[in-house]
Design a protein around this nucleic acid. Structure first.
Lengths: 244, 244
DNA sequence: CGCCTACTTGACTTACTTCAAAAACAGTGG
DNA sequence: CCACTGTTTTTGAAGTAAGTCAAGTAGGCG
């Protein structure tokens, strides 16, 4: 139960300073937890949600529905993330949210959040910053999908996810649970399933990482970072992560 | 001089409700105007700006610098836009800003904006919303560059720019000044200059639009929207634009 | 065990990139 | 006014990388 508030606070503290009052306000928020099956949508394109989602455990994805019925995944989210904070101030969802693996998601009423912002403006700024980091991640995705060759592109995504997971202490050493299918990887990176697979083979051959059965294993971080042309500056974390 | 405050208010009013107090706060902001040559940078990657930029006239672009020295353009901005509002709460710029054509840009001290948010919270929310719209545009760019074929992709960008320009009353009928070179178009859309040109030829052949010498002419809007798979919902404008 | 889904691999085709060269155009200085 | 330079746009030809299609394998689950 409290896990929800804890992961949120921990996440916000990675980029914002929260004092006791801010933390108290967060704990005062009501948060209804729901469990979702892999691939289950919990916010649809066109919805006008009255609650904000908080990833409590597992993984969540955001995607555009394409005309032909396909999907373009926009980002992946893990424990502590508020993947639809924008819903607070934008009426209709222009994209959908779904569980990637099994996920537990907390729902916080917009009304309570807005009241908390009035009582405790620094908390509002922390959430604002959260939405700005989101935007920075989107910008990087534009560059990644537009300007990098398939294997580099894939390595970059793995770097980002591993880096963010490590900040949130969600990795187990060099391993990270990433229940993303190759098909979804293709829908995120803008490549066909065949190219996804071949890129993955290349990365495996480089012996810098492995990814199979929904688990990422990072074997040589520095090398992988180089392969993926990854520079974490865009994630704007307060403390630099060890480069291992 | 006042032009700067006016275009900002006009832009914010497209998505947010501003009362007289909010407007007064905006007019109280000091704003230093500077003129820039085409292609001149005014914020660089890594900067930690103390002022926020406001496009007063002309066009401005945001881009990531690529390892090989190339650029990935992330978005284009026109009069009324605050293309680096995020700088208010994110320390270091993860991308750069430059003038596309000749542009006049106003600079508003962060301190004054932050004070205005305290005096007039709804103004802060309007700016927050502005950054959220930015993010929505980035999301669409991910999808555009990852999932759409070159001519569709190009048509989509033209649709977005024309639609946004029309909202801001920057078009002259079916015409719009867009001083973007084909090279820059390629750097925005993730295609080679050859493909840019051939896609452009195709769009010209469709007789839905023309683009030459930095001027876009929309000949058949509905048709162009269909060609570009364009749905303006993601721009979250209060009033629907006439579909002409 | 058999079915379904996800992953893997190969062969073929297509579309985009690269390379190259020419044409149009803008700006410069004679 | 006209050469001269550099840049942008246009076009063509060649090479290649990624998509499509198709078949086969491997796991997971009823």
């Amino acid at each position: 139960m409290d896990r929800a508030h804890e992961v949120l606070i921990q996440n916000l503290r990675e980029h914002s300073r929260l004092d006791d009052e801010d933390v108290a306000q967060v704990y005062a928020l009501s948060c209804t937890i729901r469990l979702f099956e892999p691939n289950e949508d919990f916010i649809r394109q066109g919805d006008d949600p009255k609650v904000a989602a908080l990833v409590v455990s597992g993984m969540v994805g955001r995607y555009h529905l394409l005309r032909r019925g396909g999907r373009q995944y926009l980002s992946f989210h893990m424990a502590g993330d508020l993947p639809d904070a924008q819903g607070l101030f934008i009426e209709r969802m222009d994209h959908a949210l779904c569980a990637i693996g099994p996920a537990s998601v907390g729902f916080i009423p917009h009304k309570e959040l807005l009241r908390a912002f009035i009582n405790q403006p620094p908390l509002g700024l922390a959430i604002w910053r959260e939405t700005l980091l989101d935007a920075a991640i989107f910008r990087e995705a534009i560059t990644n999908n537009s300007a990098r060759a398939p294997p580099t592109r894939m390595a970059h995504l793995f770097c980002e996810l591993f880096y963010r997971a490590r900040i949130a202490h969600l990795n187990r050493g060099s391993k990270l649970r990433l229940p993303i299918s190759l098909i979804q990887l293709g829908e995120a990176l803008g490549m066909s399933i065949a190219t996804v697979n071949r890129s993955l083979q290349q990365l495996r051959a480089s012996a810098t990482m492995d990814f199979r059965e929904g688990e990422l294993v990072v074997l040589k971080w520095r090398e992988l970072v180089r392969l993926g042309d990854f520079n974490p500056d865009y994630l704007h974390m307060k403390k630099q992560q060890p480069t291992e």
